[in-house]
Design a binder for these strands. Structure first.
Lengths: 327, 327
DNA sequence: CTGAAAGCGCTAACAC
DNA sequence: GTGTTAGCGCTTTCAG
């Protein structure tokens, strides 16, 4: 930076200002500084800057899984929006463990990030305290409940479960069930299951049939769980799956057994993954705005970075029923 | 850190040493330091450390896409291995653009990362020069060719394409074709396609039929591309898809048209994604070690971090044919 | 609008 | 094995 200052014939403070808040430097000097930067190929040292300013252009993001294409799409959209503005993403993978999340938050904080983004609203108590004390924007995404830590960008999974049940009911199905996986680990899946059960109770006056395998959701567990459901309730005529991967597995299981979809069994998934529109029959599903969540988080953050007065918000990004041939 | 030093009755250098290279401090002092750290809830400031040491426990990783579950699985495995050792991952998404990659490398470098991991071996010339000049380990992953920048962890996509062709030939198919997408963008897919074409030329003495849509690979493009192939070559009896998502779309297209798989048409994919084993019929595919790549990259890096004498290597992680019912 | 000067919190020679 | 000391490369008051 000293070299740049020398070449531009200014002080290092002016270089710093020209690079950081361009409007606080006269146009002439600003141009000279940028010329010198280009000529020298100068790249500022982020750590020196971060140390001096006590904050960096870094945002820590914690997701419970990358293999899950929900969060991958969100992350993808987030990087797309944040990178052009010079913000780096520090990636953390909590593997659905609050303890791992706590450790990640701690190490993120040692980088004076501009913000931290978490998935969901369930965190260790210590995590929340640390986060609150950091004095930076915190965003919880992919969930929408009470008592937000700070900002919230998501939708109600309970409402998704309710919609799935109502959709099957609308299609004239009465012997309906919910098929999920790892419900103790994946709070949001559990909320969808609970919403489904609510509607069954309200409309049919009986407890809902819920089959959940301990393993993670996948095509494999989808097929297996459906098999288990059919063993226990051979007369089932409608199934809501915790996500599209499981629904795909369920669909294949039906094909294997010669069960007509939707003639014998109506299927509805969650996610609207790429293949859902192209399967035979095409899969009815509920679409969460996977990318939009990432964009909304990024835009909100950028706004708060630019305007220190901007406070936290709660954004309900909603979701959408996509009825197709499977139901 | 001064507080910790005071509480432990030592100097800050001792605290630093105890935290960094435990063996260089007597056990007694080390214990006292850790006690003080715990009592005070001290978290070192990574930027101050990084600035002073001119390197950080950060590794920059650039992938061309997160939505693609290949790289997501690799990243997942990488975080799993690196996080417990205190390394943070800075995530970059190049979106298959060398220019974006160059920009990401630049901003990563401003953080004095411990290493940089890139996907593939095709980079802008300037990117390579900068990387080489950084004096840190560079790993290129998911490809295996000549002229590695530094370390290389991957496998030959050409060999994958050759294997796919040979497999269809082994199954007695002769009118075989390759179905891909975005081949100009995705070098590795293009290499698979080229390998496939080589074998067709060698064994059948004719140029290979290759259908490639301009859009990205997905179930949608898989179905569409297969439809196009069938329009042009109705007598085709074996198809290798650029990846499993496309193969799934192709399988659904066959179901829609009443084409028997494998009776009329043999299908082979690439990736061995979760659903491949569970589709009806189960999908033959070639499995790249998605997670193993991430683990190998992380282990290699950790080794080089620990031992400054350790040099670059090339690791061929291989791949595996998984023959199933679709071929 | 610009420059001087004082650190930000830590690491790494270098002595002891 | 441990302490002293001099920065690492920037940002940010504070003057002017």
């Amino acid at each position: 930076m000293a070299d740049v200052a020398r070449l531009a014939g200014v002080s290092t403070s002016t270089v710093s200002r020209a690079l950081r808040r361009a409007e606080s430097v006269s146009p002439a000097l600003r141009a000279r500084v940028h010329e010198a930067v280009a000529a020298l190929g100068y790249v500022p040292n982020s750590m020196a800057g971060g140390l001096a300013a006590a904050r960096t252009r870094t945002v820590g993001v914690i997701v419970p899984s990358l293999v899950n294409s929900f969060f991958a799409a969100t992350l993808d959209a987030m990087t797309e929006r944040l990178a052009p503005r010079g913000y780096q993403i520090m990636l953390g993978n909590s593997a659905y463990s609050p303890e791992t999340e706590a450790a990640l938050v701690n190490s993120f904080l040692s980088w004076s990030p501009a913000a931290i983004v978490l998935t969901g609203q369930a965190h260790a108590r210590a995590t929340m305290q640390r986060l609150l004390g950091a004095g930076i924007p915190i965003v919880e995404m992919w969930e929408l409940g009470e008592n937000a830590l700070d900002s919230l960008v998501g939708f109600s999974h309970r409402a998704v479960g309710r919609l799935a049940a109502r959709h099957l009911l609308d299609r004239g199905r009465r012997r309906i069930a919910f098929v999920g996986a790892a419900l103790d680990e994946d709070r949001r899946a559990a909320q969808r299951s609970a919403g489904f059960a609510e509607v069954v109770r309200e409309q049919l006056g009986r407890p809902a049939v819920v089959v959940a395998l301990p393993q993670r959701a996948s095509a494999a567990t989808g097929g297996l769980a459906l098999a288990e459901l059919l063993a226990r309730h051979p007369d089932v005529d409608g199934v809501a799956f915790s996500n599209d991967a499981m629904a795909l597995g369920g669909l294949f299981e039906c094909q294997r057994r010669g069960i007509g979809v939707p003639a014998d069994l109506a299927l509805v998934g969650f996610g609207d993954l790429d293949f859902a529109a192209w399967s035979t029959p095409a899969l009815s599903t509920i679409r969460p705005p996977r990318r939009e969540i990432g964009l909304a988080v990024a835009d909100h953050l950028l706004q708060r970075f630019d305007d220190p007065h901007a406070g936290p918000t709660t954004i309900d990004v909603g979701f959408e029923l996509v009825p197709r041939a499977s139901s």
